[in-house]
Structures are given as C-alpha cells and as structure tokens.
C-alpha cells in the first residue's frame, strides 16, 4: 500500500492532507486510451455534498494524431481533487477546460501532468477559478517535453477570481523542456470582480448578487468555450452557475 503523500511532494503541496487521510488509499487511475486518429471528449462534474472527499485520477494515453478533450467542473466536497496525467504521441492534441468554484473551507484542485513524448503534439489548458470564504483553489500544471518532441505547442491559461480576501488561489506552472524547437506558453492571473462593471450593472437595475453571478458566469464560461456540443456546454455552464450562486 502506498503511503499517504506529504506536502513535500510537489503535486500535493497545497492540498488538504487531513481530509485526504480520511479516504486514503484512493482508487487507481481511470485509464482513457484514445487510438490513433480518434478523438474522445469527457465532461466531469464534481459537486459532491458537504464534507465529502473526492479524489479522482485519470491517465490518458493519446496515440498518434489522437485527440482528447476534458471539461471539468470541480466544485464539491471538503477536498475535491482531479488529477490528470496525459501522454501525447506524435501529432496528438490534449484540451483541458477546467473550472473550480468553491467557498467556505473547501480545497479544490486540478493537477495535470502533460507529457509531450513525440513531435508535433499540442496541448491547451484553460482553468478558471472562483473562490469565496476560506476556500483554496489550486492548479498545478506540469508540462514535460521530451528530447524528440520537436514542434510541441503547449499552452496554459490560468485565471482566478477571489470573492473574499480570505480565499486563496495557487497557480503553479512547471515546465520541463528537453527539445529546442517548441512553444510553451503560460499565463496566470489572480483578480477580483471589476467594481466599475458591478456599478454599471447595478445602475441598470441588477441587484448585487445577480450582477456578480452574471459576471462570474461569463468568467467561468471561458473554461468551456472549446466544448463543441452546445447542449453539453449549456449543461455544464448551468451546473457552474448553480455552484456560483451558492457562493453569493
């Protein structure tokens, strides 16, 4: 049996290990293998109630030219952790759209490790977090580019919105690049709701909670723009809105 992780392990640095101990050891990773040239889309909504501890691991293997798109809403439980380990073969593409919506004493995290092992593979990770109360939202994103993986194009865009000074957002990109002809971009911002915009909405008659919900909904929707199926997109956006309204 594996030992309970400690904070000295990079991937668990900001986690809630006391809560983790309640469910340790966690089940083995679910394996998603996408054959050459095929594509797969998964929508994962984690809205466990109350003090639940949810730890899910995914191991995704993308063969030559394969494509996987994962859309995650991580909003439930005392600890909610979605860890995704991806290996890309030549010309494969990995798309992640992740949203974290949390309040009170929640710790919610998305942890990715994306390995570009062969040339011409691309990955795009977009994460939007909204945190209230004493919540902690973490995104730890590791991108590894192997020596042979020339022409890799890997992007991470991470934005967090804090609704209270007591909430915490951690964004930790980690690049490990052994090829010399690659593009790896990452951006991370932490901000608050635009007060001028809130006043503008209020001046038109929107009560504060509704004005905030409207703006946060738009912010979080940024994580789901790559979800092609309009019905699925509307469904996960509706779930996100419900979670958001719980914070206001």
């Amino acid at each position: 049996m594996t030992a309970l992780p400690t904070k000295s392990e990079e991937a668990w640095r900001y986690s809630d290990l006391d809560s983790l101990a309640r469910v340790w050891p966690v089940p083995a990773a679910e394996i998603i293998e996408v054959p050459a040239g095929e594509s797969a889309t998964r929508v994962i909504v984690q809205r466990a109630a109350g003090d639940a501890v949810v730890v899910r691991d995914y191991r995704i293997m993308l063969r030559r030219g394969a494509r996987a798109a994962l859309f995650v809403l991580n909003a439930g439980g005392k600890l909610g952790r979605i860890a995704i380990d991806v290996t890309l073969a030549e010309g494969a593409h990995f798309e992640l759209g992740g949203a974290i919506v949390g309040g009170s004493e929640q710790t919610l995290e998305i942890v990715t490790s994306v390995s570009h092992t062969e040339p011409h593979a691309t990955s795009n990770q977009t994460v939007r977090s909204v945190l209230a109360g004493h919540a902690t939202g973490n995104f730890l994103g590791k991108v590894a580019v192997a020596r042979d993986a020339q022409k890799t194009d890997a992007v991470q865009s991470v934005k967090a919105m804090l609704l209270a000074r007591t909430a915490t957002a951690n964004a930790k990109p980690e690049l490990e690049i052994f090829a010399d002809d690659v593009k790896c971009a990452h951006g991370a911002t932490v901000g608050e709701l635009d007060k001028a915009a809130l006043f503008y909405l209020a001046s038109r008659g929107l009560p504060p909670a509704q004005a905030k919900a409207l703006m946060l909904q738009a912010f979080v929707a940024g994580a789901f723009v790559a979800l092609d199926d309009a019905d699925e997109r509307a469904a996960i956006e509706a779930q996100a809105l419900e979670a958001l309204e719980g914070l206001l």
Binding site: D194, A196, A197, Y200, L201, A202, S203, R204, G205, L206, P207, P208, Q210, A211, L214, M215, Q217, A218, F219, A221, G222
Partner: peptide
Amino acid sequence: HARAAAGLFIGFQYPIEIPGVSNVQFLREA
C-alpha cells in the same frame, strides 16, 4: 439597483465593457 427600479437611469460618459456578458441577456435580466 433600487434607484433604477424606482425609475432612474444614468447614461455613462464612459460606458463600461463587460467581456463575456451579452448585451441582450444582461438587459433582459436587468
């Protein structure tokens, strides 16, 4: 927002941009 509901409208010298929020959706809600 209650001033607006009472019948007051403020036209802004510099109207605010709000990314991601559609004009019609916002106005209908308002």
